[in-house]
């Protein structure tokens, strides 16, 4: 069974139609890259899948492991294994990152009917995974994303993804605002999560990220639909020719 199956998805925000019949199938173990020009609906797709308020689905369906995502609350989708790495991670002043991580892990465990993680187990886990991503204890004590640099915010997203062990990871322009060193660290974190039972959807503007996170399938999105799919070489082709052709095709 496909991990993620999207059929004819239509979605709008404030009467503005953004997704217009999108189809996508991601099988377990696969990494899919979605590329496309600004305004093609890439971020909207990630928000609609995660259940962000304000986005209204007008037609189509989206299944995660056969479960109808669109009927679930955002927290239930998270507990079912959907994780969105935000393009612009949100600040929560006064809430220590450590507290946030722990609350999130235990909320998901509770939703799945599992026991809470014990404090020593939790601390050990965070210490190990944070170390791999170069996240200091000081960062973990600070408010969630408060005063974090762009690179730190993205690394914090990957840390959360690592700790929550989702089935489906959606990375929304995770490379934006990263210098080359940070890009490497983040990519290594993502690659470490590649697994036979896990799928990834990597949304990006640039081929650069895909040198580090090598996709199995590359899709080009335009005007709310996937207009072309291919192997990783498609990304290189786009890098050379740009999106100009697609914009004209659709227009």
């Amino acid at each position: 069974m496909a991990l993620l199956e999207i059929k004819n998805l239509h979605a709008q925000i404030e009467d503005n139609q953004i997704l217009r019949g999108l189809d996508l199938v991601v099988n377990p173990g696969e990494v899919h890259a979605i590329m496309g020009p600004n305004g093609s609906g890439k971020s909207t797709l990630s928000y609609v899948l995660a259940g962000k308020p304000d986005y209204e689905v007008t037609a189509g369906e989206a299944l995660l492991d056969g479960q109808n995502l669109l009927e679930m609350d955002p927290d239930a989708r998270a507990a079912a294994g959907l994780f969105l790495a935000f393009q612009y991670p949100i600040e929560i002043p006064g809430v220590a990152t450590m507290t946030f991580l722990r609350t999130a892990i235990n909320a998901q465990r509770k939703a799945r009917g599992e026991a809470e993680l014990s404090t020593p187990d939790f601390l050990r886990l965070v210490k190990e995974k944070a170390g791999d991503l170069g996240i200091t204890q000081d960062m973990l004590r600070r408010g969630v994303n408060v005063g974090f640099s762009g690179g730190e915010k993205k690394r914090n997203e990957i840390l959360q993804m690592t700790l929550l062990q989702p089935k489906l990871c959606i990375l929304d322009e995770t490379d934006s605002g990263l210098d080359i060193d940070a890009l490497k660290v983040v990519s290594e974190g993502v690659n470490a999560l590649r697994a036979p039972d896990r799928g990834m959807v990597v949304i990006t503007h640039y081929q650069r990220l895909l040198n580090h996170i090598v996709p199995d399938v590359v899709h080009v999105m335009n005007k709310g639909r996937i207009v072309r799919s291919g192997g990783k070489e498609l990304a290189l082709e786009l890098e050379a020719s740009g999106y100009a052709g697609y914009s004209q095709d659709a227009a």
């Binding site: 259940g51 308020p53 949100i90 006064g94 809430v95």
Partner: peptide, 30 residues
């Protein structure tokens, strides 16, 4: 409490109540 903060927490698996309690507790921490 911004919609973005709520959505961020919900996406990480917190329920609405847990999210509000967390954000408010952060607000009153001092």
């Amino acid at each position: 409490i911004s919609e973005d903060q709520m959505f961020y927490c919900l996406q990480r698996g917190l329920t609405q109540e847990e999210a509000v309690a967390l954000i408010v507790n952060g607000f009153v921490k001092d």
